[in-house]
Write a protein that binds this DNA or RNA. Sequence first.
DNA 1: TTTCTTTTTTGACTTAAGTCAATGCACAGG
DNA 2: CCTGTGCATTGACTTAAGTCAAAAAAGAAA
Lengths: 188, 188
Amino acid sequence: MIEQFKSLIKDDVDISEENFDKIAACFKPEKAKRNTILLAQGEVCKKFYYLHSGCARTFYITREGQEKTRKIMFDNFLFTALVSFIAQEPHVEFIDVLEDSELLSMSHTDFVRLLDEIPEWGIFYRKLLEKTFIFQNKKIEDLVTLSAKERYDKLMKENPHYIQRLSNRVISTYLDISQETLSRLKSK
Amino acid sequence: MIEQFKSLIKDDVDISEENFDKIAACFKPEKAKRNTILLAQGEVCKKFYYLHSGCARTFYITREGQEKTRKIMFDNFLFTALVSFIAQEPHVEFIDVLEDSELLSMSHTDFVRLLDEIPEWGIFYRKLLEKTFIFQNKKIEDLVTLSAKERYDKLMKENPHYIQRLSNRVISTYLDISQETLSRLKSK
DNA sequence: TTTCTTTTTTGACTTAAGTCAATGCACAGG
DNA sequence: CCTGTGCATTGACTTAAGTCAAAAAAGAAA
């Protein structure tokens, strides 16, 4: 598990074994069952996660009670509820687990301490933020330029595993399409 | 001009005069007239800008020929066409100037050199990325949860200067509302 | 297995917002 | 001071996608 995590880090930054070990030491293993909530709306997100295997997502619920999924994470991925994590304040976002998952988690305290102590960790985080920005930018572009059908087709083409592994309902909240419309689109 | 820029930096990081001067030395003054294009679609963005006074925006044009404004910048603000700037590859985004403006600009080469040489610059950039993330997150939330009217009202309430300083047309591309619909909303 | 809950599908209807088109307005450049 | 190009408004019509409701199917639990 830690080996896979190491290569994720080393893809982005050049880091000594010693410093990597310091980072790894801050992560504690966690298991979470399908449908568990890791972070509820209004709580402060105090953890930074590495998802080793399984599947999780961040989402929020609108005033009208609709779920909107911001991001879906699969195996070998780093994530947190970033808005709340950055400010250490409550935010609207939930995190829940969609498949039985194995995780590593680091406390916010350790996270900021590592930023001070290990420059490579800061660089790694910076690159992660850059990637996240690019991802979000694409998401906005898609919302604004594509029709519901086009968004679905694009997901189907670029990330078919989303459609294989997730329920229709979760996909519809991710693409910002109603469940009924998605169901109709699929049969076209 | 440089003083105002300095306080923008110092709000986020603790930095020595010496190091600040190294950063400031990389910025070259530039003037740009209203309606100038700083970066055209498909070009690589090689500059990181400080907008001292005036107004600029980043936007792109869809296949159907519609303008979509990603971000509007006013006085005392740092910006670039981030997707292209990060990867140093062409991207769909334009930058144009909406009011006669005074800018400082730094080359991408200097930008990455400063990241290596001055850790505070890295920290500053990281915090900028965090803020950008939060901004984008709000933008997605608004697109997905609010009606056209609600988005307009929110802008009116939270950033009335947008409405005062910008044309109807630019605001409509920013809020992702057609010009006609925006015109109708205003008279309600 | 049977039962219960959660998804998915299908149908009928509504609606927010877009498109197309025409007119009026305003200000930037000669 | 004109005058044209782009900007704003208004009207008539269209449409993509949502809502509500009910039935069918699929998982989960017992």
